[in-house]
């Protein structure tokens, strides 16, 4: 089977392009699937998380996936971040060190993931200078996203992540994808109602809403993430099933997709030049916290 892919940017049509491609191959088993990237002149590196998750699902069906006719610019970025290593290419040195490598984690790899984040965001001189408060908030946000995937997705196929930073634009992009149950299905099962995917994602992002009903409370993670992004001036996208949800400039937009993502992708873009102190307006006392 031969498939083609155009440009891939972390916007709705970028996800739609990946999902259209996946829909053409998702029922294949024991096939050779060649994906022709000659029409891909741009590939946002953080989209490797979603792309890698989809290709992983295809190879799990015992298909052999190859990426062919890759343009030099795209091949360079996907080789630098280690993505093409998964498809038989050599990794090349990232001289400018602006990539955050593509990685796949198991759900039990939380400590390995923590080490990856520390290595990529704390112990690298190339990462743009961020205020202490911003860096802490950013790390917390990434861990909240990973924890959400671990706690809610039920995935057995892992969690995929990738990122990129853009020193001149003062932007840092990071994405986490999983191949789990997906937010809409989880919310529908909890509410016992068949609501559209976009509404289900919206429900999950409202403060206090949680699909958890056991001993451990929940319902804060996505809310905290939104609050941080609103203050920072960045953006957040959530793609799950046929739902596309985005928050940027303190405004939420939702749209249905033509083809479903078999799990959930969360991407964040942060403004690394943010000078907010993230200090609290009023002091809290540890003595009466409970």
């Amino acid at each position: 089977m031969n498939l083609t892919l155009g440009d891939v940017r972390h916007v709705q049509w970028g996800f739609a392009a990946l999902l259209r491609l996946y829909s053409q191959a998702e029922s294949c088993r024991f096939e050779d699937i060649a994906i022709d990237l000659s029409g891909t002149s741009w590939f946002d590196a953080d989209m490797c998380a979603a792309f890698g998750a989809l290709l992983y699902r295809l190879t799990e069906n015992l298909n052999t996936v190859s990426l062919v006719n890759i343009r030099p610019g795209v091949e360079k970025i996907l080789s630098k971040n280690g993505f093409l290593c998964h498809y038989g290419r050599e990794q090349i040195v990232d001289c400018w060190r602006t990539t955050i490598p593509y990685q796949r984690f198991d759900v039990k790899d939380d400590r390995y993931f923590a080490g990856y984040i520390e290595e990529q965001f704390i112990h690298r001189a190339e990462i743009p200078h961020m205020s202490t408060g911003l860096l802490k908030k950013f790390r917390e946000s990434i861990f909240e996203i990973f924890s959400n995937a671990v706690l809610h997705s039920g995935t057995e196929q892992g969690i995929f992540s990738c990122g990129q930073f853009f020193p001149k634009r003062n932007r840092l992009d990071f994405a986490v994808a999983d191949l789990g149950i997906g937010i809409p299905q989880k919310v529908r099962e909890y509410l016992k109602r068949d609501i559209p995917a976009v509404e289900a994602i919206q429900w999950a992002t409202l403060g206090r809403n949680t699909t958890k009903n056991g001993a451990v409370p929940g319902g804060l993670g996505l809310k905290l993430l939104q609050e941080f992004i609103d203050l920072n001036g960045g953006s957040i996208q959530i793609v799950s099933d046929v739902g596309y949800w985005q928050r940027a400039n303190r405004t939420t937009s939702i749209n249905p997709l033509d083809y479903p993502f078999p799990g959930t992708v969360v991407t964040i873009e942060i403004n690394t030049a943010d000078t907010n102190s993230y200090a609290l307006v009023s002091e809290l006392s540890a003595a009466d916290i409970f």
Binding site: L191, R208, T210, P217, L224, Y278, E283, L284, I289, F290
Partner: peptide, 30 residues
Amino acid sequence: VAQDDLALLNRVIKTAKEYFHDRGRFDQAY
């Protein structure tokens, strides 16, 4: 505990109290 961590803990506690106090209200709001 740093002040910002205390703020997070404060929100977790408030949410937990509400979660266990009345599970139904979470759904009703939606």
